[in-house]
Structures are given as structure tokens and as C-alpha cells.
Write a protein that binds this DNA or RNA. Structure first.
Length: 663
RNA sequence: GCCGGAGUAGCUCAGCUGGUAGAGCACCUGUCUUGUAAACAGGGGGUCACGGGUUCGAGUCCCGUCUCCGGCCCCA
């Protein structure tokens, strides 16, 4: 008896019946046999993708297979990181008797394992050297990963006897997930050295494949992500095939720290934080300049697209929040104040104010859509533990707009919101991801309303041919939404823009417009923010540009640097001339060397440095140095002004309504 | 909010087992009059996050609070 398998190059390989992935690798060549980590075979059917399996498992006849080695990319890396997680658990169980293990998967750039340490034991990064040493011993010993398929009851008994409650719970859940129709008979266990774990696999042949690893940090994590359950101790680490790759990875992390917006904000003098108002930025003049440039862009793009700017109050009687539903669903995140016996709430969102404003006047169907824009200041009492630089604050402003329209206008409005969002992000070269978030458990409004709203968002996404991720249960309490996400310098994902469809608030505020039939009708409300919050957007943007803001956003666009204070008068004239082009320009008239002035201007990442001395004064010229590009040489002042005017104009973003729509 | 860690000058940090707080940069003053990434000299600046405790004596040890950092839960 023999089986035949097909290799990636199309060649067929004949192997004895019962041959394993390891046998296939040896049959191809001894080098591959040594390098092989696992084997990829077609999935078990039911539409799954290919399945990665241990080398030691028998191959199915007729399979098209691929042997994974250290050169197989992310899949192979994931495999050894999963291996490394088990080695971490082995080391920790060696060192901390009585520790309970839970789960330890590979993640994007590493792995983690969650433990419950015995009462009174805490683990910190100071313990890493010891744990890593133990891990190294296990890796060096080249302990094989051995799979064992055990009857459910046997496995359960084994973990129960060991006091491994989390594993017992996992087995019980696997059993109930299987259901009565397809009862689960066995579970797989993997053993490496002294350590055995409940694990679906696959794993590499032995711990030896883990070329280089490093523990990163320790953190708390709720068991099963549930804040009502035990807080476990999570140890993060990463692993690579070679020491060089690990070093490279650590180097990248180091560099990422240099573009952390919190550091850039301080170094560039944009904003600062203080204990006197946790979660609220203090914007310095330079930062305020950037902030205002973005608000200006919102205003300009909005007014070109039929938005009207409005202003609504900061503080409202609790009655308004009861009407909007925030009192029930959001109160704990609101700042409350009391005034003359009235309970008031500081607004965490603009929507109720805008709904009230819409309702304050009569509207005809001819007026719709009504689009209210307000870069409104919001306060949300976020839990202290979630605050994070500009990316998560308590005090911020959104580029918030609410569109009141007819049922028929919804798709067109959602579409133009998305198009406007993409035009906005294109200005910053942002590469964003979309998520469609559907009805959450905590919600208001009928199921029919949710059906309708979700269907409309879905159809618009499909019509525009946009790819998106589905995020079930993550909608706002009043409606489903399309969220726009971006990652920060360390790969953490943050939501920026959002487009939310809301049938509920118009109902609660009893909003209406007069239709062509002279009857009252209920408008639909669309909530949208494209930047999301200016704070978060600026944080992400700083990291995206590593602080090198494009000319139109730079707080100081040009700085004049006289070579000595004998030329301060000419330098002032240059400054005034350049300012005449509408540029933000400074003069550095200090009695310092030109070298120092240039160095400081470079560190401030100012786009243009204009060096002036004897020669320039004589010729009415400036010597232009461009940030990063270096010395561009001397040119007539007039020529520089023309150049700057052109760049400011083209960069001043004049997106027009007629600009091509993005497909 | 939860788990762990940290808080010394504006910034980056030093300060061993408790014995009266230090460096570089930044800032101020003076000299230099500077040509494409740091001139030279001098000077000011810290209730060592805050509050309690132990001690003859606390930046250092203990407790509490606040803030920040890394995650978790949550979120724009």
C-alpha cells in the first residue's frame, strides 16, 4: 500500500501508507528534513483554508502538501511563537509550583501566556532573567513536542487532579460547544519536557526551532476577557528564528518609541499634560496652530458639501439626557453638576444638542438634508486606566456632524460621508480599515429598526465596493455604525472616524418634517465624524509623520536665520515678506552661531530655513535650506516667495465638490 | 475600574547597605559677530509626586492617595 501526495511544484511523491509529514520531508531531501517545522495540508473540508499539522502526523492520501520551514514566513513564525509560549509555561511551572496555567497563543509580533500565580506571589519584569534562563535551558535541550489524543474524561481528570481549573473549564466548554449531535470524544495534549498543555496544536518538532526569544512585559488580563472574572498575569514575549531578526525587531521597537506622539508633542512643544486635569491636553501655541489647521480643514470641506456650522451648549438638564437615552446607558461616563437643585450633565456627545436644535424649528422636506456641523468640545469621564496620551482623553473635540434626512436620502448621505472620509484621509496618506459594527446588547429601538439600519449601511459598503471587517455587537446604543480605524506607531489599533445610522433619537426627540403630502414625517439621523476626535487624529498623525508635519500643517513653516546680528534688519524684512505670502514665519535674531540656529530649527522640524548674511542682503536673496533635504543654495527672495506661495496654495487643500469620486 | 511597574531640576538620568541632593542638555547674564546640525565663561533653578508612619536622622524603609507607563476591560 502506498499514498501519493502532491508537492507545491506539482510533482507527485509516493510514500508508504501511514507516512508522516516528516517522512515526506526526508523523502524530498535531508536538508528539508532538518529544516522542516510542520506540514500544510488541505483543510478537513467544510470550506476551511489549509491546515498546518505536526510533522509527526500521518498524511492523507492524495493531499497537496507544503512543508513549512523557517523560510515559510508568518505561518512559520507563528508556529515557533506558539512553541515559545509553551516553553514559557514550562519555565514558569518549573519556577513557581502551584501556578495555574490558562492559555498562551501566538499574536501579531510575539506570544503571551496567562497564569494565575499562587496567592501572594507577583511576577514582574525583574523576574524575567530567571524565567528566560530557564526557557533557554528548555530550548537548548531540544525537547520534542509530543502530541497525545486523550479521551475527554481522562484529560479532564488529569487536569483536575493537577488543580488546573482553567484547563478543566476549557475542556468542559469544548464539550458543550460540540453539542449532543457531535459529541467530542478526545482532546489533544502536547508535552514538551516536563510540561503538558491542553492544546489544539500544531507545534514544531522540538523546542530547538525557537532560534531566539525575549520576554517583553507583564500585564494583567481578565480570564476569558471578562472583567467580572479573575485577573490573570499575562507575560508577553516574542520569538524569531535568528538572533539577528530578534535584534532587528527590538531595534524597530526602539525606533517606534522615538515617534511616540507623547514624546513628539513634548519635544516639538505642541501640548503637555498635567496632574491637575488628568486626561486633558494643554495645547501650547504650536499645537494649537496644528489643531486649528485641522478644524479649518473640517470647516472648509464641510461648507463645500452643504454642512452648516452650529454651536450648542456644554451643559444640559438631565431631562435632555433622559430623552436621548444617555441617562440610562451612558451616565457613568458623564461629568455631572448640580445647579440650584437641578441635575445637569456636561455633554459627552453633541447629538442630543443637535437633535434639540433641529426640533427647535419647523422643517420642510425641501430643506432636507439638514447637516449640522460642530467641532464640539466634549467631556467623557473615562476610567483612569484607559487614558493614553492624546489617543484616549477625557476632554476632546470631535469634527462632529449630524445629518437629518428622509429615509430615501440615507444611502446617498452615508455614501457621501464615506467619500468625504476617504478624501480626508487621502490628504494625510492614511491607510485606514473599515469596520461595520452591528447592534449591541445594550441598545434602544426595535429590532425592525436595527434590521433596516444595518441593511442600509451594508448595502452602501457593498455598493462602494469597500472591504470591511464585521464587528458584531459593537454598534452605538442607538444605531449601527461604520468605523474607520488606523494603527499607532506600536501597531495598536484606534478608531478615528465613524458614520452611524440612527432611527432612534429622532423618535425620542419626536423630530419631524413636513412632507410633500403635507403630513408630518420622522427624519433619519446620521451621526458622523471623520477625524474622529481632533486629539486622537493629531496623535495618530504625529506618529504617522514621525513629527515631520507637511508644510500646510507645520506650526512654523519657515524661519529666517541671520548669520550675525548685523543682518537682523534685512532678516526682519525677509520675514515680513514671507509672512506676506500668508506663511507662518519666525525670525531667529539671537546672537548665536548659524550652526546652532540651524540645528535647533532642524530639531523643530521647520520645513524651510532661510539663511541670510552679507551676500543675501546685497542681492535681495535668501539661502534656502529645506528640512531633511539640506542646503538648496541661494535664490532671489522673490523666487522663494513664489515657490512658497505655490506650495502653500497646492497644499492648502482646496478639495472641490467636483473632484473625482473614489470608487 | 482591574493587574503589574514607575514618579529626583523644563528634558534625559545618577544618587551603593538610611547620614544634610548631582551631571548633561535646556534657561538667564556676559563675551564672541558667527555661512548650513551644538562658540566660550559665569549664574539661577529641586518641600526628591502628595500625605502619614518607623528612626537620633528618610530621596532611600513601611502604609495610604494622586499621576504616569505596559496591558486587560471599555472607547473617538
Amino acid at each position: 500500500m502506498a499514498i501519493t501526495v502532491t508537492l507545491p511544484d506539482g510533482k507527485e511523491l509516493e510514500l508508504p501508507d501511514g507516512a508522516t509529514g516528516a517522512d515526506a520531508a526526508s523523502a524530498i531531501g535531508p536538508g528539508l528534513a532538518r529544516a522542516a517545522l510542520a506540514v500544510e495540508v488541505p483543510g478537513a473540508g467544510n470550506g476551511d483554508g489549509p491546515e498546518v499539522r505536526d510533522l509527526a502526523r500521518p498524511l492523507p492520501d492524495g493531499a497537496r502538501l507544503a512543508i513549512l520551514t523557517d523560510r515559510s514566513g508568518p505561518q512559520a513564525l507563528q508556529l515557533i511563537r506558539h512553541d515559545a509560549a509553551h516553553v514559557l509555561a514550562a519555565a514558569v511551572t518549573d519556577l513557581y509550583p502551584g501556578v495555574k496555567i490558562s492559555i498562551g497563543p501566538p499574536i501579531d509580533d510575539g506570544f503571551y501566556y496567562d497564569f494565575e500565580f499562587p496567592a501572594g506571589t507577583t511576577v514582574s519584569e525583574a523576574d524575567f532573567p530567571q524565567i528566560e534562563e530557564r526557557m533557554r535551558a528548555h530550548v537548548k535541550a531540544a525537547e520534542p513536542f509530543e502530541r497525545q489524543d486523550l479521551a475527554v474524561a481522562v484529560a479532564r481528570e488529569r487536569f483536575a487532579a493537577d488543580g488546573q481549573d482553567y484547563k478543566v473549564e476549557l475542556i468542559d466548554d469544548l464539550v458543550s460547544a460540540g453539542g449532543p449531535d457531535e459529541p467530542l470524544e478526545t482532546v489533544s495534549l502536547y508535552t514538551n519536557g516536563p510540561f503538558t498543555d491542553l492544546c489544539r496544536g500544531p507545534h514544531g518538532p522540538s523546542t530547538k526551532s525557537i532560534g531566539a526569544f525575549r520576554l517583553g512585559s507583564v500585564a494583567g488580563a481578565y480570564w476569558r476577557g471578562d472583567s467580572t472574572r479573575t485577573m490573570l498575569t499575562r507575560i508577553y514575549g516574542t520569538a524569531f528564528f535568528s538572533k539577528a531578526e530578534l535584534e532587528e525587531h527590538l531595534e524597530r521597537l526602539e525606533q517606534a518609541k522615538a515617534r511616540d506622539h507623547r514624546k513628539l508633542g513634548r519635544d516639538l512643544g505642541l501640548f503637555t499634560f498635567s496632574e491637575v486635569s488628568p486626561g486633558a491636553a494643554f495645547w501650547l501655541p504650536a499645537g494649537t496652530s496644528v489643531y486649528n489647521a485641522l478644524v479649518g480643514l473640517s470647516r472648509q470641506m464641510g461648507s463645500e458639501r452643504g454642512y452648516s456650522e452650529v454651536k450648542t451648549p456644554q451643559i444640559y438638564d438631565s431631562e435632555l439626557w433622559k430623552t436621548s437615552g444617555h441617562w440610562d446607558k451612558y451616565k457613568e461616563h458623564m461629568f455631572l453638576v448640580e445647579s440650584e437643585g437641578r441635575e445637569m450633565g456636561v455633554k459627552p456627545m453633541n447629538c442630543p444638542g443637535h437633535a434639540h436644535l433641529f426640533g427647535a424649528r419647523r422643517h420642510s422636506y425641501r430643506d432636507l438634508p439638514v447637516r449640522f456641523f460642530e467641532p464640539g468640545l466634549l467631556h467623557r469621564n473615562e476610567p483612569s486606566g484607559v487614558l493614553h496620551g492624546l489617543l484616549r482623553v477625557r476632554h476632546f473635540a470631535q469634527d462632529d456632524a449630524h445629518i437629518f434626512c428622509t429615509e430615501e436620502q440615507v444611502e446617498e448621505e452615508v455614501r457621501s460621508c464615506l467619500e468625504m472620509a476617504f478624501e480626508t484621509y487621502a490628504l494625510f496618506d492614511f491607510d485606514v480599515r473599515l469596520e461595520l459594527s452591528t447592534r449591541p446588547e445594550q441598545r434602544i429601538g426595535s429590532d425592525e429598526m436595527w434590521d433596516r439600519a444595518e441593511a442600509k449601511l451594508l448595502s452602501t459598503l457593498q455598493e462602494l465596493g469597500l472591504t470591511y471587517e464585521l464587528n458584531p455587537g459593537d454598534g452605538a446604543f442607538y444605531g449601527p455604525k461604520i468605523d474607520i480605524h488606523m494603527t499607532d506607531s506600536l501597531g495598536r489599533s484606534w478608531q478615528l472616524g465613524t458614520v452611524q445610522l440612527d432611527y432612534s433619537m429622532p423618535e425620542r426627540f419626536e423630530l419631524s418634517y413636513t412632507g410633500a403630502d403635507n403630513q408630518e414625517h420622522r427624519p433619519v439621523m446620521i451621526h458622523r465624524a471623520l477625524f474622529g476626535s481632533y486629539e486622537r487624529f493629531i496623535g495618530i498623525m504625529l506618529e504617522h509623520y514621525a513629527g515631520e508635519l507637511p508644510l500646510w500643517l507645520a506650526p512654523v513653516q519657515a524661519i529666517v536665520l541671520p548669520v550675525s546680528d548685523r543682518f537682523n534688519d534685512y532678516a526682519a524684512a525677509v520675514r515680513d515678506g514671507v509672512a506676506g505670502e500668508g506663511a507662518r514665519v519666525e525670525l531667529d535674531s539671537r546672537s548665536e552661531s548659524v550652526g546652532r540656529k540651524i540645528r535647533e530649527a532642524e530639531l523643530r522640524k521647520i520645513p524651510y530655513m532661510l539663511v541670510v548674511g552679507q551676500r543675501e542682503q546685497q542681492d535681495e536673496a535668501v539661502s534656502v535650506r529645506e528640512h531633511r533635504a539640506g542646503d538648496l543654495g541661494s535664490m532671489p527672495l522673490k523666487e522663494f516667495r513664489d515657490r512658497l506661495r505655490g506650495e502653500l496654495y497646492s497644499a492648502a487643500l482646496k478639495p472641490s465638490k467636483s473632484s473625482e469620486r473614489r470608487a
